[in-house]
Design a protein around this nucleic acid. Structure first.
Length: 806
DNA sequence: AGCACGCCGACT
DNA sequence: GTCGGCGTGCTC
């Protein structure tokens, strides 16, 4: 038997199957979707078995060393999905596989140094010999790290046969085992044994008495570690096991990141709007029919309850459901809603979990221990075997697009998987992406509308403040008079305020006031960002940092000033203007520690603060009854980014943030501060008018030839020498022009807004197309052509349907 | 991705 | 003459 194996190297030259002989004894074991260790060149690598066959066109086959898995880690469906992913995002097969598996499944490669000829090594290189004899298991990387000069001497010793290298391929995925102790015999027998113990065996008696006291003795078991923690003697337990009175057992342990008790919730009564939306979803589940629903519901319209009841239906059919939620709204509250309804049947997947925790959640899914997974983007690859439903909440969120390889969009993967499983997809949003809403308009998706909030609360009243006018009147503060007044009012009424500051597009850079010099990164074409805590200037692209200069590097004046507004600055301003207000600041700095996110929100929920000031992360999901005022400090900070989706993002953001106010008994108010108060994105958001925004934005996209009217493909290349990239970019543009149909347009090559990152110069080409069968083959050829030959350091990357155009 | 082969320049 | 730089090509 022969296995086709993809070697665990995400690079083009090895992106093809390699044939290996399956050794006798493993013939019945190896299956497609398993990981194996194979000799590759002169190294050993992990590989993915994709196919079994009887013959190979290669004469001299090597043999599989070992099999890493008891069961395939990739189901047949996921293997095919990997193939599709590689094709449609132009990535390698293993890059696709790795994206579908928890990080713990990645192999750890180590090289162990073994001394073959100690005497001869002693003679030829005594220093090396004595060094190696001092270390227990000398690893190549460790030795080279601490003594770089030894590297060449070891290579020489290897070529002389004095040393050899053992390639270790370590599987990081290890299920944590825990020893559980239980009674091996009946209660009476334990009592008898206890009575017969010698007077000296006090510790053993203690343990026996503990077990005898347990009411449910026959099913009672607990971890050995817990026993020891309660003060029982480990030796005594061991003795009792030897005597056959107690029994121990290795139990798979799932690290549960959610140990807290969860209160069970039950299905709520639905409003008529909700039932109308739910019915077609249930029908689709019932009939095992693939459909895509776009659930357009205003904030607070009860979309989650629809999700929950749909899932309930899926579980009742013994099928499984995937729920995708953007990373930033995957908060404990959010997860609790699902755990509350479905309890133990829910697995959670997000970046806050440790490697091991993620692996455990993944195992629960694969082993059928859970029926629901709630997770961020990558949870779309959950290895369920009978998918009954996929839900994507906040469908418009750009975080569903992975920015690095494989550059997939979770929405596309969801629809592809749902087709294979013949099940529905529900896309939910208060502000659907134009792409999805347009598809609903064309009846490709089924539109479900929820126009009312469940508790009949009106949407908050929204006021737009013109910051230019404030400026003219001499108010240079970040707070307009009206907003400040309203905050004061809430302080008096003991109500709460949420202030939202979007930092993107407003990063704090440093500029010289007398000559206008902006301090930029020497490696990247971008201004450095000021970090107050360390008084440093840092580059957000390459990590370069330098001391904050005292004087201007160009004109030597001492008028270096910070520009831009950060949350820290706003907090300082709040403290100055409203010293009595208690403020909680939530941004990357204050939420870095695990659990601090949750902690700050709980503090705010318990009304230990009057004002919650934060960035993106507070735009979603917050639901506090006492919040009656929401302030958007700079609504147009996104509007001027060089991005055709800038208006859409602005509209979405204002709408989401406004939704945080007045969700309960007290009515809500929203103040939007803007320098462009007459922009339709700002006005339509203030009026809660999605349709108006949609119409206007669609017209613009149509005129400019952007999605959803055209698809985009972005080809970016980088090289240390500007002339080399320029040349390559020209070649790429002409290949595209010569091979694509007339209906497609090729733009560029152009230098992007950030022209250099990490000492590499950048160029881009863009393709706009409606239907272009030649696109994938041509792009494939371009990739092949420019990286096959290792083309002197040119890097080329392709992003189909890019979300970020920088 | 590694790793070796191979072909050039600067040293004992 | 040898050591060592990194361009090129292969790995079932």
């Amino acid at each position: 038997m022969i296995a086709e194996v993809y070697i665990d190297i995400p690079a083009n030259p090895v992106n093809k199957p390699f044939d290996y002989r399956i050794p006798e004894g493993l013939e019945e074991v190896v299956e497609p979707g398993m990981r194996v260790t194979v000799p590759f060149g002169r190294t050993r690598r992990l590989g993915f078995v994709t196919k079994l066959k009887n013959e190979s066109s290669f004469k001299q086959l090597k043999t599989i060393d070992s099999v890493e898995d008891h069961h395939p880690v990739l189901t047949q469906e996921l293997l095919e999905l990997g193939d599709w992913l590689a094709r449609t995002t132009l990535c390698t097969r293993v890059a696709a596989f790795q994206a579908m598996l928890p990080a713990a499944m990645k192999a750890d490669y180590k090289k162990l140094i073994e001394v073959e000829q100690p005497d001869q090594l002693q003679a030829s290189d005594p220093e090396l010999a004595s060094f190696l004899s001092k270390v227990k298991n000398p690893m190549w990387s460790e030795v080279v790290k601490h003594h770089p000069k030894l590297s060449n001497r070891m290579k020489r010793a290897i070529s002389q046969g004095l040393l050899s290298i053992h390639q270790l391929v370590q599987n990081q995925a290890r299920a944590k085992k825990v020893i559980h102790v239980s009674a091996a015999v009946s209660r009476e027998q334990l009592e008898n044994a206890c009575a017969q113990m010698t007077a000296r065996a006090i510790r053993q008696k203690e343990v026996l008495q503990f077990f005898v006291q347990q009411s449910d003795l026959s099913s009672f078991q607990l971890p050995l570690a817990d026993l020891v923690n309660q003060g029982f003697s480990r030796d005594a337990v061991n003795k009792l096991e030897e005597k056959g009175l107690l029994h121990d057992e290795q139990v798979d342990h799932y690290r549960d990141p959610f140990l807290k008790k969860v209160e069970k919730t039950y299905p709520l009564d639905l409003t008529s709007e909700q039932s109308e939306a739910l019915t077609p979803i249930l029908e689709s589940i019932e009939h095992e029919e693939h459909r895509v629903f776009l659930c357009h519901g205003v904030t607070g319209s009860g979309k989650t309850e629809i999700y929950l009841q749909s899932i309930q239906h899926v579980i009742a059919q013994s099928k499984q459901a995937i729920v995708l939620v953007p990373e930033i709204s995957l908060t404990p509250q959010m997860v609790l809603r699902f755990k509350g309804r479905f309890g133990e049947q829910v697995a959670v997947m997000h970046s806050g979990l440790s490697r091991g925790e993620k692996y455990d959640e993944w195992r629960k899914i694969r082993e059928g221990k859970v029926q629901v997974v709630v997770g961020a983007r990558s949870a779309i690859f959950a290895p369920f075997k009978h998918l009954g439903l996929i839900i994507i909440d906040e469908e418009h969120e750009s975080s569903y697009k992975q920015e690095d390889i494989p550059r997939y969009h979770a929405r596309d993967v969801a629809i592809h998987r749902a087709k294979t499983h013949q099940c529905p997809v529900v896309l939910g949003s208060a502000t659907p992406s134009l792409e999805s809403f347009a598809r609903a308009g064309k009846h490709v998706y089924t539109l479900l509308s929820l126009k009312k909030r469940v508790n009949q609360r009106p949407l908050p009243s929204v006021e737009i403040v013109d910051l230019r006018e404030e400026m003219r009147e001499g108010n240079h503060s970040v707070f307009s008079k009206i907003l400040l007044e309203k905050i004061r009012d809430r302080l008096e009424k003991k109500e709460q305020t949420v202030l939202f500051l979007n930092r993107r597009g407003y990063s704090t850079f440093v500029m010289c006031r007398s000559c206008g010099t902006v301090v930029t990164c020497p490696h990247c074409d971008i201004s450095l960002t000021y970090h107050r805590a360390q008084h440093l200037l840092k580059c957000h692209y390459c990590g370069y940092e330098q001391k904050m200069p005292d004087t201007c590097p160009t004109c030597a004046s001492d008028a270096m000033r910070f520009f831009g507004t950060g949350t820290q600055k706003v907090e300082a301003e709040l403290n100055r203007l409203l010293p009595e207000a208690r403020v909680i600041r939530m941004d990357v700095d204050t939420t870095r520690k695990k659990g601090s996110h949750e902690h700050l929100l709980r503090q705010f929920g318990e009304e230990q603060a009057d004002i919650l000031l934060g960035t993106q992360m507070i735009a979603k999901g917050l639901d506090f009854p006492k919040v009656t005022l929401v302030g958007v400090l700079a609504a147009d900070s996104l509007l001027h980014l060089p991005d055709f989706r800038a208006s859409e993002k602005t509209f979405q953001l204002i709408t989401q943030v406004s939704g945080r106010a007045g969700r309960h008994a007290l009515p809500g108010e929203v103040v939007i501060q803007s320098y462009t108060p007459d922009h339709y994105a700002v006005i339509d958001a203030a009026h809660h008018d999605y349709e108006a925004f949609y119409q206007q934005e669609m017209e613009l996209r149509h005129r400019a030839g952007y999605p959803p009217f055209y698809y985009l493909a972005l080809i970016s290349m980088t090289h240390p020498e500007p002339a080399k990239v320029a040349e390559a970019a020209e070649r790429v543009a002409s290949i595209l022009n010569n091979n694509l149909s007339q209906s497609s347009q090729v733009y560029g090559p152009v230098v992007p807004a950030i022209s250099k990152i990490n000492d590499r110069y950048r160029y881009q080409c863009m393709v706009k197309y409606k239907r272009e069968p030649a696109l994938l083959p041509v792009l494939h050829k371009i990739l092949q052509h420019f990286q096959e030959s290792g083309k002197n350091n040119l890097q080329i990357s392709i992003d189909l349907n890019p979300v970020v155009l920088m």
